[in-house]
Amino acid sequence: MTFSPPAPPAFADCTPRQKAARVLSDALAPAHLVVALLLLVGWHSTTSWTGLGRGLLAALFCGVVPIGIIALGVRRGALTDQHIRVRRRRVVPMALSLASVVAGVALLHALGAPRPVFALVVAMPVGLVSSLPVTVAWQISIHMSVAGGTVMILLLVLGAPALPAALVAAAVGRSRPVLEAHTPAQLLAGTALGGTAALTFALLT
């Protein structure tokens, strides 16, 4: 049976539990996590302003532009909300985001970006390409895919000190069912797809 998430209620009509879940879900949205991860990896790669600058450039193509694409879609009425609950409408913004990421990959390669930053930007389209065919037929959790991939990559970069980042994935995994956005199976599948990005990053660094 196909799972169709209901339209979210207005924030004012939410229960306190739903309000907390909405705040967490919005704060830990995929594009936000991508920007934070790129800045952190950029700084860590060289511990200099050069690395941070490359991270900022990557964040522009991989985070800021996708946020703008979704915001424009919501404003024009092509998308229902920033989380794109109607899965058939995910394809166009995901494809445009993929094009932006590919452009970022080309530019960072030309500029000789630090290897971890370049590896991370390459890993992102791998995750997007893995998600595209699935999301056409199934409401897989992109939130969980990015959150899970973020935690795995942080562990690869920072080691044990990154373990508290698992709380981020836990918060996302808890908030999405409260909002009736995903089933447990869709959350698990999203996490597994996040592993494809982490594996790509590991192979390239």
Rank of each mutant, 00 (worst) to 15 (best):
T2I: 09
S4C: 12
P5I: 04
P5W: 04
A10Q: 08
F11E: 12
F11L: 10
D13E: 12
D13H: 14
D13N: 15
C14S: 07
R17T: 10
K19S: 08
L24S: 09
S25G: 09
A29D: 12
P30H: 03
P30Y: 06
A31T: 13
H32M: 10
A36W: 07
L37K: 01
L38F: 00
L39P: 04
L39M: 06
L39R: 04
V41S: 00
H44M: 12
S48F: 03
W49D: 04
L52R: 07
L52C: 00
G53Y: 00
G53H: 04
G53W: 02
G53C: 02
R54S: 09
L60D: 05
C62S: 13
C62M: 02
G63A: 10
V65C: 06
I70S: 00
V74E: 09
R76C: 05
G77D: 00
H83E: 14
H83K: 15
R85Y: 11
R85E: 13
V86C: 08
R87K: 11
R87S: 12
R87D: 07
R89Q: 05
R89L: 14
V92F: 05
V92I: 07
M94S: 07
L96P: 00
S97W: 07
L98V: 04
S100L: 15
V101M: 11
V102F: 10
V102H: 11
A106G: 09
L107E: 07
L107F: 08
L108Q: 03
H109T: 14
G112S: 11
R115I: 01
P116W: 04
P116S: 03
V117Y: 02
V117L: 05
V117P: 03
V121L: 01
A123L: 11
P125M: 10
V134W: 10
T135P: 03
W138P: 07
S141K: 01
H143K: 11
H143T: 07
M144G: 06
A147P: 05
A147M: 01
G149S: 04
V151S: 10
M152I: 00
I153S: 14
I153N: 14
L155G: 08
L155V: 10
V157Y: 02
G159F: 05
A160Y: 10
P164Q: 07
A165F: 13
A166F: 14
A166Y: 14
A169Q: 14
A171G: 12
V172M: 03
G173C: 08
R176M: 02
R176W: 08
L179R: 13
P184I: 00
P184W: 01
L188Q: 03
A189I: 07
A189G: 11
A189Y: 02
T191H: 14
A192S: 05
G195C: 02
G195P: 03
T196F: 09
A197L: 13
L203W: 12
